[in-house]
């Protein structure tokens, strides 16, 4: 058998730690971060019936992290009786977005066409964002299910970004930057986002400069939001696994440094 290298032991350890944490059920209480609170307050204080554009700008790969974020935000929006228009800038996000909206709408007995519509996917994200700024019906002549745009009661009220309260981009990459640079800068569209943990620091400068109105990030953001709306979900469930993985990495860093210093000391002793 091939000898295992240190990296393989590191991988194996992580697998064991995460699996063990997933099997345990420990209730957790989290401190809400100001960004999550800001997102919650915005959706909470919007007048009932406000139209929000929800863009599923992610691929299938990040679903375990994206799903709790999207579910928490959709739940809050439907609970507040906001009207949602869904769409996707990446082909893979299309069906995921549709299923998520359908599932959460069902939980709150919301009706397709009246309370939410799903426009589907548009390729070439920059062109799509700019084009919607000119005309949403021209960009999406029909919805995801094939119904003409004009036949949907909710869609009839929306012709451009002027008719929506903002866009909520659910993303695992840098697509929200395009919403900020093209939708926000050019059409004054209010941009909010639910992003994976790896992308949080990318968007921090936009939040602090006000170019992005609000953001929730990663599994932790989803868990905080679930606490705020008082509906449990994947965020709170996954937090234990994430926390133990973080602690495991911290332990690795300590071990790595101990080994490094021991090696350094040995070398110094030999001289």
């Amino acid at each position: 058998m091939k000898r295992l290298h240190s990296r393989h032991w590191v991988f194996l350890g992580l697998l064991v730690v995460i699996t063990a944490a997933m099997l345990l059920r420990v209730p957790m209480q989290l401190r809400t971060s100001p960004e999550t609170q800001r997102m919650f307050d915005y959706l909470d204080q919007l007048p009932e019936g406000s139209v929000i554009l929800v863009s599923f700008d992610h691929e299938a790969s990040s679903l375990p992290e994206i799903r709790p974020i999207a579910e928490a935000l959709l739940r809050h929006a439907f609970e507040r009786d906001h009207k949602l228009i869904g769409m996707a800038l990446l082909a893979e996000g299309t069906v995921i977005g549709y299923r998520l909206m359908e599932q959460v709408a069902e939980e709150y007995a919301r009706e397709y066409g009246e309370d939410y519509v799903y426009l589907g996917f548009k390729p070439q994200f920059i062109a799509a964002i700019l084009s919607m700024g000119e005309s949403i019906p021209a960009t999406f002549p029909e919805d995801y299910l094939g119904s003409p745009y004009a036949t949907l009661p909710l869609a009839q009220k929306v012709s451009s970004y002027d008719d929506v309260a903002g866009v909520l981009s659910i993303t695992d990459g840098s697509l929200t930057t395009h919403w900020i640079e093209y939708g926000g800068a050019r059409y004054n569209l209010r941009v909010m986002a639910g992003v994976t943990a790896a992308m949080v620091t990318t968007y921090d400068p936009y939040v602090s400069s006000g170019q992005m109105h609000a953001m929730i990030g990663g599994l932790r953001g989803a868990a905080e939001y679930e606490q705020l709306i008082d509906v449990g979900g994947g965020g709170l469930r996954g937090m234990l696994a994430q926390s133990t993985a973080h602690l495991y990495i911290l332990l690795l860093v300590i071990i790595g440094n101990v080994l490094y210093w021991r090696e350094k000391k040995n070398k110094a002793g030999k001289r």
């Binding site: 240190s6 990296r7 590191v10 991988f11 350890g13 992580l14 697998l15 995460i18 691929e59 299938a60 790969s61 990040s62 679903l63 375990p64 893979e92 790896a198 993985a245 495991y248 990495i249 690795l252 860093v253 071990i255 790595g256 440094n257 490094y260 210093w261």
Partner: peptide
């Protein structure tokens, strides 16, 4: 695809182990 994305967690662990040294 989710499997490939999940590899990231393992690579973060190995990169942290190797990279974060108080040199």
């Amino acid at each position: 695809q989710a499997t490939v994305f999940a590899l990231l967690a393992f690579f973060v662990a190995s990169a942290s182990f190797r990279g974060f040294r108080a040199r």
